[in-house]
Write a protein that binds this DNA or RNA. Structure first.
Lengths: 201, 201
DNA sequence: CAAGAGTCTGATCGATTGATTAGCATACGT
DNA sequence: ACGTATGCTAATCAATCGATCAGACTCTTG
């Protein structure tokens, strides 16, 4: 048997941290709860990550890295495609990712409603690149009259609001409407709806 | 000088609780922080409200009471008006209220992403009535072809996502876009944008 | 004026928080 | 084979959490 590698445990801790930070907020998720779900002892968190704050940053890096990668990969396959189709498919990809990874928008809504060091870090490191890319694409569409004439920043918040909310509030959605927000058909229906409102039929 | 009445202090405590619960979540807001902002001592919270949980419920009642009242008052003034115009103006009212009271959607996104007694209580007491009213109105509009043919539940989550998100993430919006989400002109622009996407020009 | 109810504070409780320390066990380098 | 670095745990730290209790102050009532 080989010497136990640190990597698998690190990953298990990060996965537990992503879930619990996104569900219970930074303050609400205790290090003991995270270590418990990861199946390790609490001091091990401080061995792999120096502090709770460092653990949060590592978890957010992992989560937003996956989002950025998914969007970049989708865009790679769309070289030469016209702007409307590109935007349509990127919005679909974003809705789909938000449905399968509701933790992203959960963490955003937790950290970005109050000023603080975590918000500063999150915005500059992960959100701003996505925002800039979204806004330049939407601005081109508005210029060409392919999308209602709305300031791009407002379009950004409309998409990032309308797309993920149903899945961020997944448990509420199930209880309130009876609809299962993890059902692939439901996800497709929602992506259709958002795209239809934005780009027309 | 008259004997100090309990009512003003109760209101100050509730106002502080609404702000801090919505900003830092139930776990993240300590009773000492709330009492400090309200200018009273911490044991006084347990005098006016039996527990932190009771205080949270009272604060939520106050907050959602204001929302329900604002929407009801708006609808009262629209007796006899056609469905599209009614929906348009109610959505505008909702966006405006969400902009001036971002605490509403902040608390929803905090409590409704995980099952629990607070979510059950919040959904059945405050959210379901608003949901039912919204869905029946939207279903009529879809039936008349006045709104894209999208299941009403999805329209509900699109509106409750696209409307408040810019204001829920107010500090982020300011930092990310330079736009001041408390500016009345910005609020109007956003309400315009949401209505245009939903109901056309 | 005296008794009592209502409003509020200081002191303190046990529980839980993030963090630190000392030390155990195992596999690798020499 | 021996020493050492790596991965991990048990025990425990001070700080903070929600909550409780006894008592102080003030106005109302009889």
């Amino acid at each position: 048997m080989t010497r136990p590698s640190a990597e698998p445990t690190r990953e298990r801790i990060l996965a537990a941290a992503i879930d619990l930070f996104s569900e219970h907020s930074f303050d609400g998720a205790s290090t003991r709860e995270i270590s418990g779900r990861a199946g390790v002892t609490q001091p091990l968190l401080h061995y792999h990550f120096r502090s709770k704050d460092d653990l949060w940053r590592a978890a957010v890096d992992e989560l937003f890295g996956a989002l950025t990668e998914a969007l970049a990969a989708r865009q790679q396959g769309l070289r030469g495609v016209d702007d409307v189709t590109t935007a349509r498919l990127l919005v679909r990809e974003f809705v789909h990712f938000s449905a399968t990874h509701p933790q992203v928008h959960r963490i955003i809504t937790q950290e970005c409603k109050v000023d603080g060091p975590r918000m500063d870090w999150l915005v500059e490191r992960h959100i701003r690149p996505l925002y800039e890319a979204t806004v330049t694409l939407f601005a081109r569409l508005v210029e060409q009259g392919l999308v209602p004439d709305v300031p791009a920043a407002h379009l950004y918040y409309i998409v990032t609001g309308a797309g993920p909310t149903m899945f961020v509030l997944g448990p509420e959605c199930r209880r309130l409407t009876g609809i299962d927000p993890t059902d692939p058909d439901v996800i497709d229906t929602h992506a259709d709806a958002v795209c239809r409102l934005l780009f027309g039929d």
